[in-house]
Each structure stands twice: as structure tokens, then as C-alpha cells.
Design a protein around this nucleic acid. Structure first.
Lengths: 384, 384
DNA sequence: TTGAAAGCGCTAACAC
DNA sequence: GTGTTAGCGCTTTCAA
């Protein structure tokens, strides 16, 4: 049974009010009383009960975090950023996972809401229709989205990159490398608005380059089956693309593995592009070509923004009513293209990549990191 | 301002006790009253305040989780396992990170303790000397270690694999592949008792095989610099080993990257073994040879064990005193060796691997996954 | 500078 | 079945 503030007060021969004041630095406390309290706290190993404190003070110093999955390192990175920032500000994280599912999002958010978190940082499947965001709005709880696309129908601050522009940049880069048959493998679009945005940008880039609409195949986020997707491509009218865009690095790595198992070389036979820029990608062989987004910083910025929101909320403008004219403070972070090993120039001398288990040995002459016209595209940070 | 139980009671025309009883399923409630309460709850969007509930009931339904870092996917996997199990049992996670540092562990544990978590699952740097575990013991809070070595001096349940045996198995496997110059790159031993155990087993295996003591180099966990470690090897008396054991997959992947950048081929020039079995490793090219531990299951088992502990704790044996004769219920999970692409037979025809940026092209004849005598070693689960 | 006292939202005796 | 009530540990007026 942990010591309570009353125990401390008794032992120090003061009132609980004095103990509270000293511990919170609110109001003056005499030096002798202070000393006695300090001693009592130490002797009793007193640790203020956060529950009692929260109940009375009506602020929990808890931040809720909800992400689709921990399996994708990109989310773990963001959480690391959030954690560091939150801790520095004296907040603790309450944590939930949604598995890319709207109903589970709702459940997770309810669970965090039950503990009266002071604010929340989350990634949802589809902001526009998210019941979880409805709950948050209705509760009037400050929250910030990360990774999600800014939702026109919601006034919720969002920290992300321009996924459409990034998707477009990938297409243009592929075209610049000489590719004409592009394709995309994406996680379930219903579970990820950003995947949808990346796809939209990608298609737009292809169209702008005068190419036919690239083939697109969806796979499951949790247990992606890239082999099936590749088969689907191969059995389509155009065969396997020479350049594949995967909606995230996780998927891209699995896809490269599948291609390799099929006896195809990357990027010799097929170029593969990922999205996220997870740290591991840079260590692959060949290094993963990808769109690098600053995940950790994204988490940190979201946390700082949220904390500002929460503290400003002491004098909340009006319960539930957002300032009519003001934008909700979106942060559009810069992304960069990493035009690394897994994406190379198209090889015209090579026959159309086939899925037959032919031993395709050639390695396209250990190319130096392709000098790309789009290399390290860098959008400067914008805040709206 | 969220609705309270009193609001609901008023609206339903019953007492708060009735509302509480209905919501918690404790005690009978008349059908008409029940209906009115249900309605009121729905209309008010009532969500019971977890703080109030915890304060009164003296159980928070919160589980604290503290890990060294989210940067290493192996911990994220374990947390995913914990989360799934905890959620199924109606618990929510309070989350902290220690950065492999004992002082930070202490801080993080204090933070979680402040919210009166019902129990805790954590990985510490060194169980024997961990101030965080001291706090936990002193608080009499049920807790379970994961990944850590079972500490002889502490009666704390631990879910892990036999790191010593695994380290030994790696050494024996390397020897079986013909390697004679072994080496190890490990994360800071002071920050990881399991790295130390893996090292001990590895050294033991080398010794048992009649080899001289392998060279060992420590690197930082957070920002490992494998290049420096490789240089250190190269400038040592024995030069670069032909087989390198890295204390985790993260490190192994970074090391392979460094070797490749140096113009050395893996496993042609140097075989590399990791530890953890993170999912990404299997998709690498070559696939990462590693010791696979069941991280997600590890988290799940730890959570189940903890929950059992917590509920049994209603009638705690005696505050602080562990049952004298009984073992604390360690779970030693099975590990398997994945003898994949990054570890191959030593190549005797090749000159001693050097660090000079000579263009070493040879790829050791695209070997099939070495048929290893130790393949898929499998210890059965033991519970002590 | 200090103390007394009133709750924060909830559960759990205890009465009826 | 249902209501009354006493706190859980804490912060915070309000007096002194």
C-alpha cells in the first residue's frame, strides 16, 4: 500500500495542503516545513498518485497515441519522436493500436478517452469518415493527426508530407530513368488514405508523362502477399512492369524479396520504389529507393503542436467550436527522394521480365547510384 | 465537460449506485431501470472516468510497458504482442522508453508507477543492479521481464530465450561451416545483459571448438558505427574475421551494409550472423542468418503471465515477501537458428579479407542456402 | 505561511 | 432491486 499525501503530512507534522504546495511549487512554504516534508517524502518513498491528482486537477498529463500497427517501423519511429517530446514536457503516453481498422480505431480511442488523456496523436484509416475522430471532436479533445492527409471536412491539425506530390515525384523519376511500364503495389486503400494519395499522385505523374494508366494491385497491410500481386501483374495484358512503386517500405522490401525468389534482379529487371524511408532500407542490398519522410520529427512536431494546443486550451475558445476562419495548423513536412540502388535505368537490351523461373543472372553492370534529375527533391516546410 | 455517472443517474431517475451496478455487471438491476440507464448513457455519450474508477477500486486496469528503444523492431514486435493480449483482457498500455540507460529506466518506471499501473512488463539493462526493479520490488508491483536474462538475485518472472545457448549455437554453426576466425560486434554490454549472455555463449562455443578467443568490439546501441568496429578488427593482430556474430539483427544489417560498402561480399568474404529474427531480415538479399526468437509470442506470454499474477494478487501472499521456495515462473522460449544467406561456408581459396577498397568482385558462386548441421535447432519450451 | 474542508468521479458497503 | 453514503488521493479555495 503506497504512502499517501496524508501519510507524508502526518509524518512531517504539517497539513496535506502544505505538502501539496511544496510538491507542486504552488504557493510558498516555510523552509523548516519544507525540510520536514522533503524528509518525510524520502523516508516514505512517497510517489504522488497520478489518478488522484488528475481527478482533482482535471488534467491527466497523459497523451494518447494510436497507430495502425507497430509492425511497420515507420510508426514506431514516430512514436519514438512523440515519446521523447512528451517526456520532456512531463507527459506520459497511453498507447493503442488499430490494425488499420476503423472499428478498432474507435475502440482504441474510447479506451484512451476513458482515462481522460489531455490530448491525442493518431493515424486513422480515413479521416473523413473516421468514427474515432467523431468521438474526439465530440469530446472536444485536442488531437493531431500524423501521416494522414489533411481532411478538408475536418478542422484537425495534421502533420504529414505531401503524399500526392511524392507519388508524382516517384512516377516522374521512373520516367526519367527511361521506364515506360509502371506499376504500383499498395496496401489496402480503404485502410490508408495516404496510400490512396500516393497512388493518386503516381497516376497523375504517369499521365502527365503521357503514359497509359499504370497497373495497380492491392495487398493486405498485415500479411502482404507480394507474390500474388506479381502473378497478377504477370498475367495481365502488359506483363510485369519494369518499375514498381510500393506504397510503403515494408511492402517494397517484401516485394523485392519476392522478385528475387522469382529469379528476377532488382533493379536489373525491375526497379522498385518504396515509401517512408525507414532506416533499415538504406542498409539493404541494393539500398532501397524510397521517399524519405521525417518520421521521428513528424512525431516530435505533432507532440509539440498538441502540447501547445492543450495548454492554450486552458482558456478554450468555446467548447467544440473551432475558430471559424482559422486553418487548423497543418504541418506539411519536406520529403526527399532517395534514388538508391533498387531503382535504376530501364534496360532496353533485356527481354520483357517474365515470371518464369529462368536463371536471370545479369546484374545490369553494378551501376553507380543513378544520377537522377529528381535527386533529393526537397520541399521546404510549410505551415498553413 | 464529459458527463458523469451522476448526470446519468439523474437523467435516468435512479441512483448512481444503480448506474454503476449496471455498467459493471455487479449486482442485479431491474429491467426498466436498466433500460432507462442505457438510454441515458447513450444520450449523454457517457464514458466512465477511468481515473475515478481506479481511485476507488484500487485497480487501474493499466499495464506499464518499458523497453529500451522503439528503434529496434524486435521491441516493437514484443509490444505488439503485449498490446493484443492486454487489450483482449481489458487492459490499456502505459508506455515508456529507457534508451538502454539505467537512470532513464528508473525515471520511466517512476512515471508509470505514478499512475498506479496494475503491473508492468519491461526490459532492463541489467536486472541484477537495476534501480527500476528495486522500485518495483519495493512497491510490491507485479512485473515480468522480457528479453532479460533470469536474474539469480531477483525473484522476478522472466520470459526470454536461452541467450547463452543461442550464442553457443551460433559459434558451433560457424565452426561447422569451416570458419576459424570468429568475431563479434555487440551493443554496449553495460546496456544489455542479453548481449552479454550471447557473447558468453559465443565465446564458450569457440572455446569448446578449440578456437582462440574471438575478437569482440562494442558499439553504441542507438547510433552503431559498424565501420569503426570493422576498422578495429582489421587493424587487430588477426585481421577481419571470416565470420561475424552481431548481438542483434539491427547491428547485423548495419554491419553487412558497412562490409558491402568496403567492397567485401557477404557471405563470400565474411559471414554475418544476427540475433532476434526480425521479419525484415528474411527479406534481405542475402537473407539474414540469425537466431530467431519469438518476439511477439514473448510479449503475449509475458502479458498473460502478468495478468495471472495481477489477478492472483487480490490475495497477495504477503506484501513484499515472495514464496521462499518457489521459482518465479520463468519462461524459456525456444529459439531457432536461421542459417540463411548471410552466413556461408568459409572460402579457403580466397585471400584474407582486407579492408582495402580493392574491387572484390567474386560472389562465391551463388551458393544455395548452406546445408547446415545445426539447421533449425529447436529447444522446447521450458517453464521453471 | 499554514490549515480546514470541499469536492473531482467513481465503487462498495450497508440499509431498506 | 435500489438508494445512501463514505471515502479512494489529491488540489484548491477560503480563512486564519
Amino acid at each position: 500500500m503506497p504512502a499517501t499525501i496524508r501519510d507524508v503530512a502526518n509524518r512531517a507534522g504539517v497539513s496535506v495542503a502544505t505538502v501539496s504546495r511544496l510538491l507542486n511549487g504552488t504557493g510558498r512554504v516555510g523552509p523548516d516545513a519544507a525540510a520536514r516534508v522533503q524528509a518525510a517524502v524520502a523516508e516514505l518513498g512517497f510517489r504522488p498518485n497520478g489518478m488522484g491528482r488528475s481527478l482533482k486537477s482535471r488534467r491527466s498529463r497523459l497523451i494518447g497515441v494510436m497507430i495502425p500497427s507497430l509492425g511497420n517501423p515507420v510508426f514506431a519511429d514516430a512514436v519514438a519522436g512523440i515519446e521523447a517530446e512528451a517526456r520532456a514536457a512531463g507527459f506520459t503516453l497511453l498507447f493503442g493500436v488499430s490494425n488499420y481498422d476503423a472499428a478498432e480505431e474507435q475502440r482504441a480511442v474510447e479506451a484512451l478517452l476513458a482515462y481522460r488523456v489531455d490530448g491525442m496523436i493518431l493515424t486513422v484509416a480515413a479521416p473523413a469518415t473516421s468514427p474515432a475522430l467523431d468521438s474526439l471532436d465530440q469530446a472536444g479533445l485536442p488531437h493531431v493527426l500524423i501521416y494522414n492527409q489533411p481532411a478538408p471536412t475536418r478542422a484537425v491539425p495534421t502533420v504529414t508530407v505531401d503524399n500526392v506530390a511524392a507519388g508524382r515525384a516517384v512516377a516522374l523519376h521512373m520516367v526519367a530513368l527511361g521506364h515506360r511500364r509502371l506499376g504500383m503495389i499498395t496496401g489496402a486503400l480503404g485502410g490508408s488514405d495516404r496510400a490512396a494519395a500516393r497512388l493518386a499522385g503516381f497516376l497523375d505523374g504517369a499521365r502527365a508523362s503521357g503514359l497509359p494508366r499504370p497497373c495497380v494491385h492491392e495487398v493486405d497491410f498485415e500479411a502482404p502477399d507480394p507474390d500474388a500481386a506479381l502473378k497478377a501483374f504477370a498475367s495481365g495484358p502488359d506483363g510485369l512492369p519494369t518499375a514498381l512503386f510500393c506504397s510503403n517500405d515494408w511492402l517494397a522490401i517484401a516485394t523485392i524479396g519476392a522478385l528475387t525468389r522469382q529469379g528476377l534482379s532488382v533493379p536489373g529487371d525491375v526497379s522498385v520504389f518504396g515509401f517512408d524511408g525507414i532506416a533499415l532500407g538504406a542498409h539493404l542490398n541494393p539500398p532501397l529507393a524510397t521517399v524519405v519522410q521525417p518520421s521521428r520529427a513528424m512525431g516530435g512536431i505533432a507532440a509539440r503542436h498538441l502540447i501547445a494546443l492543450m495548454t492554450a486550451d486552458g482558456d478554450r475558445p468555446a467548447p467544440g467550436s473551432a475558430p471559424p476562419g482559422s486553418a487548423p495548423g497543418h504541418h506539411l513536412l519536406p520529403f526527399t527522394l532517395r534514388p538508391a540502388g533498387s531503382a535504376g535505368p530501364v534496360c532496353f537490351t533485356r527481354p520483357t521480365p517474365s515470371m518464369a523461373p529462368v536463371e536471370t543472372t545479369g546484374n545490369a553492370a553494378k551501376q553507380a547510384p543513378a544520377a537522377s534529375p529528381v535527386a533529393d527533391l526537397d520541399l521546404s516546410t510549410r505551415t498553413s
